[in-house]
Amino acid sequence: MENALEITGHRPFPLPDRPWVMEQIWNDVLFAHWPVPAEIMENHIPSQLTLDTFNGKAWIGIVPFWISRMRVRGLPLLPMMKSMNELNVRTYVEYGGRKGVYFFSLDADNLLAVTGARLLYFLPYVNAEMQVDKSEGIINYESRRKNEYNEIGKFKAQYKTESSPFNSKKGSLDEWLTERYCLWATKGDRVFRGDIHHTKWQLHEASCLIYENTMASFLPDKYFTNEPILHYSPQKHAYFWPLTRVRS
């Protein structure tokens, strides 16, 4: 079995020089992306970060998946941390010339993981009721937030792969939307980076029926009327490093 930590040629910057702290295996990952005018998206990211665009356009991404293995380095695989479902809403930013992901929200159905990520990574995790099942290659995914904001935190979709696997071409939109190796977070005036590593995504074209989506209600509905750009990947083993403060 290949060691993902030894495969680094696809990364835009080197691995951190300290040990990783957590590993996860992501399954049935769907990337659904819609273009958004940059001047609109800029109003929704922290002022310390610079919006990253492709040919002048910003993009909003909704990414559902489920986790089959979640382990903190040095600890056994704990039953309460073994698996969970997760649904991310994200865009793309840079700081100090390093491009990465900015998360508007991360919904999950594991309260322990939600609490820990909010405390340790300053990420906007939200506890949700989620149901995911797969039958004959079709993934049915449903999520509803378990708080007073659940009316603006619903997602229901059905998706499946529609092609053989491929690797994105260098400089393509496929690559730009998926190959990201850090996240950016802010707390007050402080800026933090969280490094991530995995091998290059092996992507598939996908189809998706979205029955309900109120995950990005901070944007006007008109930006979601067009068909999204879709990518699917069956599985990815990922490693995480602790947050690094890059601005006080």
Rank of each mutant, 00 (worst) to 15 (best):
Q235H: 14
L120V: 13
E2W: 11
F31S: 00
Y92R: 00
L219K: 06
E142Q: 13
L77S: 15
M130Y: 00
T8M: 07
Y95P: 05
T53G: 05
D195C: 04
G137K: 05
N88D: 11
N140G: 07
R73H: 09
C208T: 06
T225P: 00
L111Q: 10
M1Y: 13
G96V: 01
A113Y: 02
W201F: 13
L112A: 13
G188M: 10
P79W: 02
N110V: 02
D17E: 13
E142M: 09
H231A: 11
W201L: 12
Y239I: 02
E205Q: 14
M22H: 07
P234H: 14
S135Y: 08
G9A: 14
C182N: 02
Q158K: 14
V132D: 01
G56N: 04
D189M: 07
P16V: 05
Q158Y: 00
N147H: 13
S83P: 01
D52P: 00
E151K: 15
D221H: 07
R11S: 06
A113Q: 10
L49I: 01
R145M: 08
L119C: 13
Y239R: 03
N226I: 10
K222S: 12
G74P: 00
F13S: 10
E179T: 07
H33N: 15
R118Y: 05
D133K: 15
F65H: 01
Y223F: 12
P124M: 07
I196H: 08
V101I: 15
D221N: 10
P234K: 11
W20K: 05
F240H: 05
L78M: 10
M130R: 04
A117F: 01
I138Q: 07
L87F: 00
I229R: 14
L177Q: 08
P220M: 04
T161H: 06
Y232C: 10
H237G: 03
P19Y: 00
T244K: 15
E2V: 11
N88W: 03
E39Y: 05
E136C: 14
Q158R: 15
E175M: 09
F224G: 04
K99Y: 02
H231L: 12
P64K: 01
Y95S: 08
L173A: 03
I45V: 11
T199K: 14
N140V: 04
S68R: 03
E227S: 13
H197S: 13
N127E: 11
W26S: 08
D28H: 10
T91E: 01
C182Y: 02
W184L: 01
W184Q: 01
E86T: 08
L230Q: 07
I25W: 13
W241V: 07
F54A: 02
N127R: 12
W184G: 00
V21R: 08
T214V: 07
T244D: 08
F13W: 14
